[in-house]
């Protein structure tokens, strides 16, 4: 495990990511070095196919790096086992997806419970109360007992945010979180993520929406295998 400055939630050092299909090696990320700090909201933009999704997979420990070092909350995580990655994902990272990805057979609060069920921090605590509290914070107090199919897109995404926040993670990764939402809901989502950022979390949003720039502390663009700060 290496050491990095404590203000960085994430540090990538000379990270390269290649995909191999038969004999062809496709380079997606090349020698990328970047830090993501606590308490800041990052918007990652760029055209389709430039590697935004690959980057967020690597940051979320869903995919490994080909070369280089990845530090998460100060710990070197690029060589962790599958089980260790799972633990990190559960405790340190909250994910928000474009399609909400809620379990259709579970009620809103039960979906929020899911990450807490495997977190030892919440063992013996009233997880349902915490789930309700999170949903109430997101103005879903009257939707706690509802199934995802009974909720609008904006409400489902708010449930997904509550689930991402359930374990109080240091980092929130959001992949096109407002891709399926109208402007009003987009505003609600971005404001909530900004709020979380102000609480000291590192929020990284991949989005095509230009609205995200209004809320971002830093806007990054991926181009030619490299990431550049544009604002």
């Amino acid at each position: 495990m290496g050491d990095v400055m404590s203000k960085n939630a994430i540090s990538l050092k000379h990270v390269t990511k290649n995909y191999q299909t038969n004999d062809i090696v496709i380079e997606v990320i090349k020698d990328l070095t970047i830090d993501f700090e606590y308490g800041k909201l990052y918007a990652i933009m760029g055209h389709s196919g430039v590697g935004k999704s690959t980057l967020i997979r690597i940051l979320g420990l869903l995919d490994s790096v080909t070369d280089g070092e990845y530090y998460l909350t100060g710990k070197l995580v690029s060589n962790l086992s599958d089980n260790q990655c799972s633990e990190y994902r559960n405790k340190k990272i909250g994910f928000i997806f474009q399609d909400y990805n809620l379990d259709g057979y579970l009620k809103a609060y039960e979906n929020v419970l899911l990450p807490m069920c495997i977190n030892p921090k919440y063992k013996g605590t009233n997880k349902k109360a915490r789930a309700k509290e999170l949903l109430e914070e997101l103005n879903l107090g009257d939707r706690i007992e509802h199934f995802p199919r009974e909720l609008s897109g904006g409400e489902q995404q708010r449930v997904a945010i509550a689930r991402a926040l359930a374990n109080n993670p240091d980092i929130i990764l959001a992949d096109e979180p407002t891709g399926n939402l109208d402007e009003e809901n987009e505003k609600i989502i971005f404001e909530k993520l900004q709020q979380e950022c102000k609480k000291g979390k590192c929020v990284i949003i991949v989005s095509h929406s230009s609205e995200v720039k209004k809320y971002a502390d830093k806007v990054l663009e991926i181009k030619n295998y490299q990431i550049k700060e544009i604002i």
Partner: peptide
């Protein structure tokens, strides 16, 4: 399988 993937993203181990 998709839900299993989501559970894995949420930090569930294969054994879980």
């Amino acid at each position: 399988s998709y839900n299993i993937g989501i559970l894995r993203v949420l930090g569930y181990k294969k054994s879980h």
